[in-house]
């Protein structure tokens, strides 16, 4: 693509983002940032520029993430078919909007799952979606998807935690649908996502339930302390009691004095960062977080260095 064409796509995407509510803009921007590759980001950017609604974009991003580039590219190009060619309108639309092409493969169920109105390829949306006018109209039709506050400064494609009203790093208030995963063990929810992000640094993670007959909390804390001393942050799941998996958090660092250890715990939802004594973890004391029922570490993701 030429520089000029890139500029047009970027401008259209920015124009579309500016019309999202701050929250929708933040989560869409986050999806762009978290794209699995440059190609995926480009596909998503084009879908933004084409005026798709935030929920459709988030679902599209989630659908793309597990795909290799070649497969993503194939699925974002109209499928070849026997007989007469696809209607010209659909072909033009698919050229401008990878999401339209993706849906033409019959993979648009994610939009219905999210409760938005799936567009009929080549129809529904009012003709080829190639410009600002169509993008604006579609945004205008998606009142349930976006508050469209429109206020605030132009932040480009960066996440603005301030705009979201919280210093929440790596998160937004509404998550995209989770990608399917194969038969995780108890207490294992996101270690595949963790490893996907950290393998480039030679680290993988494996989540295990704590105090459910396998790993005991004391052992878990000992292994967490070793990992933290080795420079590796340790994700945990908090809950009211063993077997309850309520919220992810992150052990950032550990400090020891003699046999005494304290861990620094970060809750990415409330953005609280607190120090917790190991004895308080072991006693099941109420953690010094604003969410009182989170008393215990109920699962832990222990890191392993990979060659």
């Amino acid at each position: 693509m030429t520089d000029a064409a890139e500029d047009v796509v970027a401008l259209r995407a920015r124009y579309a983002l500016e019309r999202f509510s701050p929250e929708d803009r933040a989560r869409t921007t986050e999806a762009l940032e978290a794209a699995g590759s440059e190609l995926q980001r480009e596909l998503l950017l084009r879908a933004v520029a084409a005026g798709n609604t935030p929920s459709r974009l988030i679902a599209f991003a989630a659908a793309l993430r597990p795909l290799q580039d070649e497969e993503a590219m194939r699925l974002c190009t109209l499928p070849e078919r026997e007989g007469p060619p696809a209607p010209l309108g659909l072909r033009l639309k698919a050229m401008a909007d990878p999401l339209t092409a993706y849906e033409a493969w019959g993979r648009g169920a994610f939009a219905r799952e999210l409760g938005s109105s799936p567009r009929e390829p080549g129809g529904g949306g009012g003709g080829p979606n190639l410009g600002f006018a169509v993008a604006s109209r579609e945004l205008g039709e998606s009142a349930g998807d976006s508050n469209r506050g429109g206020g605030g400064p132009d932040l480009g494609f960066g996440i603005s935690a301030r705009e979201m009203g919280a210093r929440e790093l790596g998160s937004s208030r509404e998550s995209p649908p989770p990608a399917p995963r194969a038969a995780p063990g108890e207490g294992s929810f996101a270690d595949d996502l963790m490893t996907q992000g950290t393998s480039v640094l030679g680290v993988s993670y494996r989540e295990e339930a704590v105090d459910r007959g396998g790993l005991a909390l004391a052992q878990a804390l000992q292994r967490a302390a070793q990992a933290l001393a080795d420079g590796l942050p340790v994700p945990v799941i908090l809950g009211a009691r063993p077997g309850k998996y309520s919220r992810h958090a992150l052990l950032l660092q550990m400090q020891s004095s003699g046999s005494s250890r304290v861990f620094q715990l970060h809750d990415p939802i409330t953005t609280e960062t607190v120090w917790v004594h190991e004895k308080d973890f072991l006693a099941g004391s109420e953690l010094p977080l604003s969410t009182a029922p989170l008393r215990r570490i109920t699962a832990i993701a222990l890191p392993v260095r990979t060659p």
Binding site: L169, G170, P178, A179, A190, M194, Q196, S246, R247, L252
Partner: peptide, 24 residues
Amino acid sequence: ALTSALLTALHYGRARLPGGGGRG
């Protein structure tokens, strides 16, 4: 870098927790 990657993973993994990972 690890913390950045993990926070992103926890964000996406949140929806897999019972109740969406946002409750107490």
